[in-house]
Design a binder for these strands. Sequence first.
RNA 1: GGCGGCGUAGCCAAGUGGCUAAGGCAGUGGUCUGCAAAACCAUUAUUCAUCGGUUCGACUCCGAUCGCCGCCUCCA
Length: 489
Amino acid sequence: MTLSIYNTETGKKSIFQPLAEGQVKLYVCGITAYDYCHIGHARSTLVFDMIVRYLRYRGYQVTYVRNFTDIDDKIINRANEQHTTTKELANKFINAFHEDMAALGVTPPDIEPMATEHIDEIISMIETLIHNGYAYQQGSDVYYRVDRFKAYGRLSKRNIEDMKAGARISINEKKENPLDFALWKGSKPGEPSWDSPWGQGRPGWHIECSAMSRKYLGDTFDIHGGGKDLIFPHHENEIAQSEGATGKTFVKSWIHHGFVTIKDEKMSKSLGNFLTIREILKKYSAEVLRFFIFSSHYRSPLDFSATAMEQAETGLNRLYSCLAEIAKLPATGDPGKAQAAGKKNIKKINSLDQRFCQAMDNDFNTAQGLGHIFEVIKALNTILQSLPPIPAQADLELLRGAAKNIRELAAIMGLLSHDPLNFIAEKQKQILADLNLEPGAIERLIQQRDEARKEKNWARADELRNKLAEMNIEIKDGTEGTSWQVKLG
RNA sequence: GGCGGCGUAGCCAAGUGGCUAAGGCAGUGGUCUGCAAAACCAUUAUUCAUCGGUUCGACUCCGAUCGCCGCCUCCA
């Protein structure tokens, strides 16, 4: 089995071959720390979390670097507005980011470098670029000479002439070409600044990623990722900087994920239609958000809505319910009894690994992978349904093995991480608390209903059941008495 | 204007030229039940925006048209 990845640069899927056998070096552009993160950021971190987990599952040794931009214009402006320093502001939101990531259960990257801690590397790279003729100084600024880099536009598939015609670029007298971008910006009085050969200033936005990825991953590395909006100019400029400085290919494969939209529009601060991760997590669990995100392909746009989240929650509950039923099975069965499971279902269950990996190998197709998991859930439910009171030992082993397998595969997406019985119990406890209900009171009502049922007083029994239903309590009459649960979702 | 992408059932969504177009949610009929609920079974796209072309064969490749979205300015 071979892993294929869609590479933005070639516009095609191709077989993934790491530079060093068994090792993957991955750099992902992280956040600019000036505000709370929204669910678009959540998608980004969750998608790469899944990619890293899958690569590791496949046996690769992954070095995962994700940076923080902790100095730029937005941070400076926001710090001024809030009468604080850029450092304090950035730290505040980096901490908030870490809290959000912990709440989402995201595996931390191996290295989380910050721009302001790599000023030396940045300056040194700019000096190399000046030396190589790719950059020029104007006063206390340094700009990248876009015309000089022949491959400029390679990633975003545009050419310099077309972009000039676009004419949405502000004319800056200091630049040789309006498309040239800043590597170093001279600072105004009162702004945070560092010493440099060109005077007091700070790095441009793009250079930090070139300098830091080089430091931690080398001149050439396997995968560079981010949101689609970073393709131009950010990643295009990174290529120009890194390749201008090293003369080597910067990145083998570019991965860009799609946006989260609301009512089919990209979330953005100017439209005021963004939701922060913490707002979402007040209403939905991390796994519901993960389920929602992974039920479509990472490159597709994803439209956020309450309906979509509720559907995700229902789907996730279905997975947990099946696993909980399996967990409730007796410890041992009858070793001599014939299996209740049919051949077709056994085959479906046993081929899950293979089919799941086939889906994931096809450019991390989590939606298809989830589909395969649901097919197996259906097979498991069918078997559970046909199980006699004392089941065959072979069936018990099959069901438990499948449940374990499903949880291992789901873990690649960070799903089904809770103990199924606990999950259901915790959830019910929480909903009960939200509804202000006492389990004791419910059980008393059920007992009253059972008495009515024994007397075949159906009118009274139904009345009590309706009363419970109004309280969001579902009743299940089984052979061993009546069980109840809170209506999930 | 330049460039990139998308359009598959009521909704969400997968689909790497050829086997019955996955899966989820919702709906309908049935099994179970005193009636229900849950679960299960069955059912819901002769068709993949439209029109052409390539091919023995296309949802899948090519072209055109319509509609939607994104990037070209900070953006995950």
